[in-house]
């Protein structure tokens, strides 16, 4: 599903060029839940952004279901992202002025021809947010916010879910709920790549890969 091949990514920083990712290669298969761990600055988020078609690597490839999104035009890549990839972030990144249902429906703006209202309602119920459907993010608990973000990520039926510290701001109970959803998604035929510092969160994954100073250390 996701093939990361010889990925390099460098940034220009105040101290010169920083090699954030150095020749990283790994695969995430369909139905697989992979955790990616490493210290801060080890390049986890950079790998995730490259994998999500948001940041072009300097070298190497990030192939999703046989397609290299960086060979597409920016508009095609945006469409590809909207159709195939779901994102979940530590900060939730919900749109503050939209209700829960509107936040869940937000990705449909990128694919305007689809009628996903029924799917949104289904996700709202599945993530136990029915009573909160008309609430703004500021009126939700952190767990509810992350569940809303999960529902949003799943609206367009993606094949790949990329999660950046999805449990970082959650209590244990809510973290467990989110991790279970991620696991279920993988089990139902999707693929999950999750960045986490938490060993407990990583334990939900089928396997864990470790990064250090931009290099892939090991895969468990």
């Amino acid at each position: 599903m996701l093939e990361i091949e010889n990925l390099d990514k460098m940034y220009n920083g105040p101290d010169g060029v920083l090699r954030a990712v150095d020749d990283v290669s790994f695969h995430v298969k369909t139905g697989e839940f992979v955790a990616m761990q490493g210290a801060s600055g080890s390049g986890k988020t950079t790998v995730l952004l490259c994998a999500g078609g948001l940041q072009a690597p300097d070298r190497g490839h990030a192939i999703i279901d046989g397609t290299d999104p960086y060979r597409m035009t920016p508009d095609e890549r945006a469409q590809f992202r909207a159709s195939n990839i779901g994102f979940v972030f530590q900060q939730f990144h919900l749109i503050p002025y939209l209700s829960v249902i509107d936040n869940v429906l937000a990705p449909s703006g990128a694919l305007p021809d689809q009628n996903v209202n029924g799917r949104a309602q289904e996700l709202i119920e599945r993530f136990n947010l029915s009573a909160r459907a008309d609430h703004k993010p500021s009126e939700l608990s952190t767990g509810e916010q992350q569940r809303t973000a999960m529902a949003r990520a799943l609206l367009n039926n993606p094949m790949l879910l990329l999660a950046d510290e999805p449990t970082g701001n959650l209590d244990k109970e809510n973290a467990m709920i989110v991790l279970n959803y991620l696991w279920e998604f993988a089990e139902s035929g999707g693929a999950v790549l999750m960045v986490t510092h938490s060993e407990e969160a990583a334990s939900y994954a089928h396997r864990t890969i470790h990064l250090k100073n931009g290099k892939l250390l090991a895969s468990e």
Binding site: G52, Q79, R81, A82, F87, F89, Q91, H93, A110, L111
Partner: peptide
């Protein structure tokens, strides 16, 4: 942040 998340969700820059 909102712009970034909309772009991440697949919104094109023209949108």
């Amino acid at each position: 942040q909102e712009i970034a998340i909309l772009r991440t969700l697949g919104y094109r820059s023209r949108q």
